[in-house]
Amino acid sequence: MTLSNLDPLLTPPKRLAAMGIIAAATKVEFGYLRDELDLSDSDLSKQLKALADADYLTSKRTGKGKTRKSWFSITNTGQQALHSHAAALRQLLEPATPAPTDESTLAV
């Protein structure tokens, strides 16, 4: 397993946390994400835009004026990317498999 197996888009911790929250929910509102992640509106918007541009998220706006809300849901592409990224992270934590020795090769 190498670093190339990690998704560079999901490497920033805040973005990863946002993806984790959105993946665990059917839909998540912008304000909830902002409060949970303790991010500014502009910073969170930037993170979410990067994910939406990669087709990891879809967004939907509801309401008007003060009741206007933005909701985010994960796409199938996003689910697969997150799953692969998490698998890559888990494999990074596994101890390296020792290379086969000549002796073990001969035994087979």
Partner: peptide
């Protein structure tokens, strides 16, 4: 990349 920390972030998010 802190893999353990990133996995912990995902678990906390869930």
């Amino acid at each position: 990349v802190d893999a353990a920390n990133d996995l912990a972030i995902l678990e906390q998010a869930r």
